[in-house]
Design a protein around this nucleic acid. Structure first.
Ligand SMILES: [Zn+2]
Ligand SMILES: [Zn+2]
Ligand SMILES: [Zn+2]
Ligand SMILES: [Zn+2]
Lengths: 167, 167
DNA sequence: ACCGATAGGAAACAATGTAACACTATCCGC
DNA sequence: GCGGATAGTGTTACATTGTTTCCTATCGGT
């Protein structure tokens, strides 16, 4: 039995999501602080929208949701700037294959980022898991082709536990 | 020495590209034929633009280049429709992390598609290489998280042989 | 001749992302 | 406290990427 039990499970459909959000907000404050930056109200509001679920959400969807709550409608660029700061802080990631953004709900060490992204095709839930072996294999395959890799993007589509069971 | 010598090298900067194009066109004709579809003039022209280099190229860049050659300027949708057919035929792939398209210059079996994409950050050349071990590791990591993967996207950024040597 | 499947033209639109410029807020050394 | 540097935001307009809708043409089989 070589599987470590510490492997983070895919987020369950009906789990208590409050702590997820709270923890993410806390980590964000910490990360900004550590870099001499600020988790401003704008950034916090954007992060709250992203972290409100375990789904990836589009920038304009964030814009819409904030507009519904806040009487004033901000410009797209404001959302993108906030997202950029959150991406840099490592508390939000981008799902490249869908032009969407999702909150990082795990306290993983942000440097290196050798994590793969799992995106359920049915419920749209997104999760990250560490996969050092996979990245080693990718680097190996790249170097066999004479390629020196600096960053690898891995996004997996499929069915999460709950959805696979329901299917 | 377990590395098979059959590993396709990254395309060299000054290689004779004529055969690459010719072969890709031939495979396209074959693939369309096999599916009861047609490699029409439009599709052929789009494919020729994509296959003209080993770079990934945007849809609107294709549009521009064809417009320069052809007096008449087609609508974006025409390019996208041609691209869709070429993607379905497996002779063109999409570089998701850059919203761009590149020709498949290898006669790999299109089913399964367990290949990773290498994109040089300096010269923009793109290549695909098989990486069954990497995909096995990805599937393993996914399944450890209770996720049943159906498709994995792997895009690696870095430096190709020539560019690494020049750096 | 007719029909369904394949292919494409035309116009408008939708979705996603940036540039440029001005202005305010905060911090830090003095 | 003052003054400059850096960080952060508002506003406007623009750039890039991709799609919807409706219609026409062509082909192959019956
Ligand atoms: Zn949660
Ligand atoms: Zn699911
Ligand atoms: Zn070539
Ligand atoms: Zn290169």
């Amino acid at each position: 039995m070589r599987r470590p039990q510490s492997a983070p499970p895919f987020p369950a459909p009906g789990h208590d999501h409050g702590p997820c959000v709270k923890e993410t907000l806390a980590r964000a404050a910490e990360a900004f602080e550590a870099n001499g930056l600020r988790l401003t109200p704008l950034r916090r509001r954007v992060l709250e929208e992203v972290a409100a679920s375990h789904h990836a959400i589009g920038a304009y969807e964030i814009l819409e949701r904030l507009a519904r709550k806040e009487t004033t409608r901000m410009a797209p660029i404001s959302v993108y700037r906030a997202l950029e700061a959150l991406l840099d802080a490592g508390v939000v990631h981008r799902l490249e294959s869908r032009n969407a953004y999702f909150a990082c709900h795990a306290r993983h060490d942000h440097s290196g980022a050798r994590r793969i992204v799992l995106a359920c095709e049915r419920c749209a839930t997104v999760a990250e898991v560490a996969a050092p072996v996979a990245f080693d294999a990718i680097d190996g395959a790249a170097s066999d082709a004479g390629f020196r890799s600096t960053r690898a993007l891995v996004e997996v589509a499929g069915l999460c536990t709950a959805c696979a069971a329901a299917a």
